[in-house]
């Protein structure tokens, strides 16, 4: 009796192990599939993020790559023509500045976009020295916080 029990248990355990092995294979396949999706999608959809000075330092090498560039909107540089539906402005950081032409939809320009706002423009740097942006992201300014903190003489202020 005891013998037969053992005999009947063994194949079950073996079968269990075989099933586990199959499941591991399935799991690995899934991991490979996810890895594949990643490997294909990253080059297709990535863009390089850089600050304006990094872009300038790169020079020609930056032309025609998909880029996201962060800097501040130069005060007084915004030329918006509602009728023609065009938006041009200059972004700057320290000594560097870059003219930007926006080609996206006006409805997608963030509300807070404006003078002296920190923005990230996404698009291409053209050999003509102009940045053609199809997307603008703006950082929410916690301006009031910043003002308060300078008034107190402390803190680096908000972003």
């Amino acid at each position: 009796m005891v013998e037969s029990e053992i005999a009947s248990v063994e194949p079950v355990a073996k079968q269990g192990r075989r099933t586990s092995r199959k499941l591991i294979v399935v799991g690995l396949l899934l991991v490979v599939a996810i890895g594949y999706l990643f490997a294909v999608s990253i080059p297709k959809f990535m863009s390089y993020y850089m600050t304006l000075d990094e872009l300038k330092a790169k020079g020609n090498a930056a032309y025609n790559e998909k880029l996201r560039v962060g800097a501040r909107v130069t005060i007084g540089s915004i030329e918006k023509d509602v009728k023609a539906g065009t938006l041009r402005f200059i972004i700057s950081q320290g000594e560097d500045s870059l003219p930007v032409v926006y080609t996206g939809r006006m409805g997608q320009v963030p509300d807070i976009f404006g003078d002296d706002i920190e923005v990230v423009v996404e698009g291409k740097y053209l050999p003509s020295g102009i940045f053609e942006a199809y997307k603008i992201e703006a950082k929410c300014p916690s301006k009031m916080t910043a003002k308060l903190e300078t008034a107190e003489g402390g803190g680096q202020g908000g972003k």
């Binding site: 297709k44 959809f45 990535m46 390089y48």
Partner: peptide, 9 residues
């Protein structure tokens, strides 16, 4: 380098 991906990714 800072690579970023958006919604399509």
């Amino acid at each position: 380098v800072k690579l970023t991906v958006g919604p399509p990714f």
